[in-house]
Design a protein around this nucleic acid. Sequence first.
DNA 1: TCAGTATGCTTCGAATTCGAAGCACTTCGG
DNA 2: CCGAAGTGCTTCGAATTCGAAGCATACTGA
Lengths: 177, 177
Amino acid sequence: MTEEASPSPLDPAELGAYFALIEVSSLLRHTVEQQLRDAGDLSYVQFQLLARLGDTADGSQRMTELADGVVYSRSGLTYQVGLLEKAGLVARGPSADDDRGVMVTITEVGRDVLARVFPGHIDVLRQLFLEPLARADIDSLARVLTVVRDHMRSIPPRSARPRQKSAARQSLTDGGA
Amino acid sequence: MTEEASPSPLDPAELGAYFALIEVSSLLRHTVEQQLRDAGDLSYVQFQLLARLGDTADGSQRMTELADGVVYSRSGLTYQVGLLEKAGLVARGPSADDDRGVMVTITEVGRDVLARVFPGHIDVLRQLFLEPLARADIDSLARVLTVVRDHMRSIPPRSARPRQKSAARQSLTDGGA
DNA sequence: TCAGTATGCTTCGAATTCGAAGCACTTCGG
DNA sequence: CCGAAGTGCTTCGAATTCGAAGCATACTGA
């Protein structure tokens, strides 16, 4: 039932990696958010969405893919896409193979905004994030974080969570797998 | 005025490190949030606050220190501390040296909750974050991220931002340091 | 000492966020 | 083919979040 408690606490390096990770991402996000705000009047999520869309061949993706991609709630995504659509940066359309699905496509205007905002974004990254790192550090960081990301992405079936109708709790640890 | 655009885009490793960082922290936070929610009915910020308070000698810190520490707005912190106080996990008191200041102190109950929640928190970290990493990876991650964090913390005078009364914009790049 | 400015915190209003519930369509089992 | 269960998205209500404005105390220079 209850998760098995870890008797052994984390060692300094583990704890340090964790705390530094959270702190770095928070600080980075905070600054980037400001930059995006006054460079293109975008929130961070909106930027992420546009960036993801701009990265695909046809510039479109399904709602669910987007939500999972940026780690956002479905309802939250509906709201944000609504804003982006109202601003003319994306368009909503039906999904070819699934009538329930909604395809979101970046517009030309959306691409323009993205292009306008990107340089400043990169500047922030360089100054705040990359500046103190050596080439090797960056490579190492990319490698390790990618491993972790892939691991995390493989753990729960993404947006799974069996829409619990009745009582059906799921423990973080029961999937001992 | 405008930031100098970076003509050179980021190389794959730089981009990869950045995206993986954001993705990892988002996913981690998401899962941790759930764990904290049903283990102790705490939000992530609340947990962070308690953890920070629990880590100091006397279990107390000023509002501003806390806000900067967890990268949160002042008003947001006021709100959260209000909740924690109402729940009896922290207590507010006057600051010794500064009559404007407010000291937040973790209570015994607060420490209990923290202790109750922590094991599960660590479990999540292990399973989701540390599991796929080798000892050396963790050490490297801790080292590099700590460098970045220290760099970030040293850039803007923390909560600075000269409360702009009149027009007094500040560019991200003008403080060429 | 005193005005003027800076800092610490809270209040206020507006925007965002999420989960639960709802609706539409799709898939599965008989 | 039909009903039940599953999935995709949106709507709804409640909670959180932030910045701007406000209030109180501290610091500064004359």
